[in-house]
Design a protein around this nucleic acid. Structure first.
Length: 286
DNA sequence: TGAATTGTTATCGT
DNA sequence: AACGATAACAATTC
């Protein structure tokens, strides 16, 4: 389940391989994943040269120069999307849904076991990308911006962080990890958080994402191999295990329909002196 | 076998 | 009316 750090890792790995290349052809065996449709996508992309590869939120954004001017390919990996190279002599990857054949003869395959991923070919990528919220690692995401983001809406903090229109790139894993590091319970109401909490949350988000990228993402199941961030999780996937800070067993609950991991002591539901005292006592005793 | 997994969208409620 | 919560959905793995 690629989130911002996994997508960033993929973009950095693929970028030097494809920028400057010309696409010879595009083939697709799963047409419903391609917009507007696979025939049009194929016709638009054929002969176009890739000039840039970027990331925005969890979208991979390839900019191309084609016969009809600038063109974009947006790829969203959703749950199980990934890229593999074909034609390097290795084994044929599983679940290949689409292939871009490059001018050097190699094929970049989009693989996706669950077929939730999307490939969008468009001349107006901003129609999609402009719906996304703030990019959390950019300079614009300040403590003040975070406070404003929280204050303007009245919502459970976890739901807010998962909303891509508000902040782009967080998924279930990094949301849980950021909330733990900020000492905030996922059910806290966004508009009730003070400036200090907003600052902590902003710093925690940037910290987990930065660490995630440094460790080349997290490998939580068979979907995304290679990352090491899972070795540094404090709460995600640690239900019942001792909190690394205070020793209290990590609790599993549902927020919205999402599985959520929380240390009930380090992330008190109610702020205040009582909760703070309890937290400090537990930390000291561990 | 069915529970779990994610982001988007449609729908219901306040 | 606008916003938030909730349910359904896509398809596969274990």
């Amino acid at each position: 389940m690629p989130e911002l750090p996994e997508v960033e890792t993929i973009v950095r790995a693929v970028r030097p391989e494809i920028v400057g290349r010309t696409i010879r052809r595009f083939q697709c065996s799963s047409p419903r994943q391609v917009l507007p449709d696979s025939e049009r996508a194929s016709a638009l992309v054929r002969g176009a040269r890739i000039t840039e590869l970027r990331r925005r939120g969890k979208f991979i954004h390839a900019v191309l120069e084609g016969a009809g001017g600038e063109l974009s390919i947006l790829v969203h990996l959703r749950m199980s999307g990934r890229f593999e190279w074909i034609g390097g002599g290795g084994a044929e990857p599983r679940h290949v849904r689409a292939v871009w054949t490059m001018d050097d003869g190699r094929g970049l395959a989009f693989c996706d076991a669950r077929r939730f991923g999307r490939i969008i070919v468009t001349r107006t990528p901003e129609e999609i990308l402009s719906r996304l919220g703030v990019e959390p690692l950019e300079a614009e995401f300040t403590g003040a911006a975070a406070f404003e983001m929280l204050r303007r809406r009245r919502r459970r903090i976890k739901a807010l962080l998962l909303d891509q229109r508000v902040i782009a790139g967080l998924g279930n894993i990094y949301t849980d990890e950021a909330l733990f590091r900020a000492g905030l319970h996922p059910l806290r109401e966004s508009h009730r958080l003070d400036r200090a909490a907003a600052n902590r949350l902003r710093d925690a988000i940037r910290e987990v994402l930065t660490q995630g990228i440094e460790r080349q993402g997290a490998s939580v199941d068979w979907v995304y191999p290679g990352g090491r961030m899972q070795e540094y999780f404090r709460v995600y996937g640690r239900t019942g295990e001792a909190c690394r800070v205070c020793g209290t067993p990590v609790v599993y609950l549902r927020v919205g329909q999402r599985g959520t991991h929380v240390c009930p002591v380090c992330q008190p539901l109610r702020s205040g002196k009582q909760a703070d005292r309890k937290r400090d006592a537990a930390r000291a005793g561990f």
